[in-house]
Design a protein around this nucleic acid. Structure first.
Lengths: 267, 267
DNA sequence: AACTTTTGTTCCATTAAATGGAACTTGAGG
DNA sequence: CCTCAAGTTCCATTTAATGGAACAAAAGTT
């Protein structure tokens, strides 16, 4: 174990729920000896990775992190991150991939990358898709509360093809499958001959859900390759979820209010 | 030199102007051997501190930094940072300190910390002060363009005491002194018997200038102590400036528009 | 205030990692 | 196919990190 990995582990201990940690906290979380951890934390403080609160000897991410967070060209938005992840998947698999978000009953493509395969699905940035009849749409819906989904489809739903869910009950079954497995699939639903695998990740701070999706010709894909795509997508999505403190909470129906700081007037 | 310090140096190489760097860039910036730097950068990538762009082997701050930037309880605003810096100065010197911002011709106290000294200046969060007749006000004005200052005081200015600048010319002289020395002083200007030292730092992304100020009884302060306060304030202000990419640019008169991302639709 | 418990630091010999020069590999132009 | 620049790997050497235990400092407890 190099000290950089140790430092990395320490920094990963911090989260929204635990923005400040003591030495003993970190010892407990990492399981490393107290002495090493003590020296490590002091070294990290000296280097600017951490800073200590005057009261209670608590550590938190330090000035160096604040410096990096100010660099606005390093886009840290979920969209930029999800887009980068999809691009990586596209390069790996050669299939087309895109990132999309939900808008009422529709899914909108926000960014897309075309694959290298001769037979490939064209990307459609800005195009709308029925949420209920697509892998990416059901992935996004899976992070809403049941009540909200029912409200959204209270007038019933339209199935553009035989394989798409035709009733609210069908849809809920498919959504529950997504919730359980962590990914969403579709074959021949909105577009004939097209297969899709999608996952979803939410940024709880912005209450924003985005879906990662890889699309491919349904006929030519091998079972093994499909499995591989699913595995990689779940891996990359899990990484994004960790980065954004997404612990699987459902999306809030109403807009969350930001708490005001204590003791300091806001501008 | 520990590897943590090296890693810290590398991360400090990134800025708004240089959001991505190659191995050779970093070798040039740090002066360390190429071999060590190569290994260091790869180790940092493995640990999540950096990530590499697929094209051009460029490095930039990595997923770990993005994770930390998401922690909302770690307040990275300039106000929170300036407040923490002032608190530290107050603890060190025992004198009262505060952070303030400009509102037209006034300075408003945004956060304050009272000193430990028996004879101390009381804090006044939310209270207004004449910008022209205070150390903190002139510090803030020093980051505006001359034209903007002239516009602000085109109706002339009022001096609340003999030592305060009475004309625009007086004021400009005092402001130019601040620009040159990097700090602002006042004795017996708005409040009798009160001395003050102030510095200013701006967050270019928010186009926000904040002033750090330490106030003390003018009569009882030793020359040496005053010098020490100035030195420490300049140090801490310089650190903040580095973190926020403040390179001494004047404040924009109009609100800067944020550029939209290329290739990706914004939500 | 004296005691106990909890929490963090320092010491030490041992182990493991970082170092820098040189040789080597890779990749982009010509 | 060659060349030059950019990046990686090798190796012996130096330097830093490790973890157990003793030590010191706070925070509770009687």
């Amino acid at each position: 174990m190099t000290i950089l990995h140790s430092a990395s582990q320490v920094l990963r201990c911090f989260s929204d729920e635990r923005p400040e940690l003591t030495l003993t906290d970190i010892v407990a979380l990492r399981g490393a000896p107290k002495s090493s951890t003590s020296r490590l934390l002091n070294a990290m403080r000296d280097a600017g990775f951490l800073e200590v609160t005057k009261v209670g000897r608590k550590y938190r991410p330090g000035p160096l992190m604040i410096h990096l967070a100010q660099i606005n060209k390093v886009d840290m938005s979920l969209l930029a991150r999800a887009d980068a992840a999809v691009r990586e998947l596209v390069e790996e698999t050669g299939h087309t991939g895109y990132v999309s978000a939900l808008d009422h009953q529709d899914v909108i493509g926000l960014s897309g990358h075309e694959g290298r395969q001769v037979l490939r699905v064209a990307t459609a940035v800005g195009r709308r898709l029925q949420a209920s009849a697509s892998a990416t749409g059901r992935a996004l819906l899976s992070r809403m509360e049941d009540r909200a989904i029912e409200t959204l489809y209270h007038k019933g739903l339209f199935a553009p093809s035989e394989r798409a869910p035709a009733t609210l009950e069908d849809l809920m079954n498919r959504i529950n499958q997504v919730r359980q497995s962590g990914y969403s699939v579709a074959f021949d639903e909105t577009n004939h001959g097209v297969g899709a695998v999608a996952t979803v990740v939410v940024d709880p701070m912005k209450n924003l859900a985005l879906s990662l999706c890889i699309v491919f010709p349904a006929a030519t894909i091998a079972e093994q390759e499909r499995e591989h795509i699913i595995t990689r997508m779940k891996e990359m999505t899990a990484q994004l979820a960790r980065q954004f403190n997404d612990h699987g909470q459902p999306l809030l129906d109403t807009v969350r209010r930001k708490k005001s700081q204590s003791g300091v007037l806001s501008i």
